[in-house]
Computed example of a mutant assay.
Amino acid sequence: MSTILLSSSSAGFNYLSMALLVVMFGLMYFFMIRPQKKEQQQKEIMIKELEVGDSILTSAGFYGSVVDIQEDLVIVEFGNNRNCRIPMQKSAIVQVEKQDK
């Protein structure tokens, strides 16, 4: 008789642990995965709206202005002397500030 009680209580424990796993996965999705996807979508939109003349901040911390845009590269001009033009990947752009029109 004690084995029957033991097996019924272990079945309840299995349902409880399964429910806890589902709740933990749901919380992880809403606190980690969803915000990361949203941030990634915002960055993709920012890169698509990039135009020549926009001021940018790179992942290395350099400020520059966009001179030319190619498929997955941008030519960025750094400094006041206008001689420092460096090609870099679009993924290295962290922030874009639109030019005043």
Rank of each mutant, 00 (worst) to 15 (best):
S8W: 08
L6F: 11
T58V: 02
G53W: 08
N80W: 01
Q89A: 11
V66A: 08
L21I: 10
I45W: 03
R34Q: 07
E71Q: 15
E71K: 15
I45Q: 15
S91H: 12
S59I: 05
D68V: 09
N83L: 14
M88F: 06
S2Y: 14
F62D: 11
I47H: 02
K38V: 11
M28H: 01
Q99R: 14
E51H: 11
I86Y: 12
S7H: 07
L21S: 14
I93Q: 04
Q89C: 02
S55W: 11
Y63R: 12
E71A: 12
M32V: 10
P35C: 02
L27H: 03
I93E: 04
S17E: 04
M24S: 12
S17Q: 15
I93D: 01
V52A: 13
P35E: 00
G64M: 00
M24P: 00
M46W: 02
I75H: 09
V52T: 15
V66L: 04
V66W: 03
N14P: 00
Q36L: 03
S9G: 01
E51K: 14
F62C: 07
V76F: 03
M28L: 08
M46G: 07
V94I: 01
S8R: 12
S17C: 10
V96L: 09
L6I: 13
Q36W: 01
V76K: 06
L21R: 06
M32G: 04
K43A: 05
Y29P: 02
E39C: 00
K98Q: 13
P87D: 02
G26A: 15
K37V: 01
Q42T: 05
A11Y: 02
M32Y: 10
I4G: 01
A92V: 11
L6P: 05
Y63L: 10
D54V: 02
I33M: 03
V94T: 10
I93T: 02
Q95I: 13
E44P: 00
K43N: 06
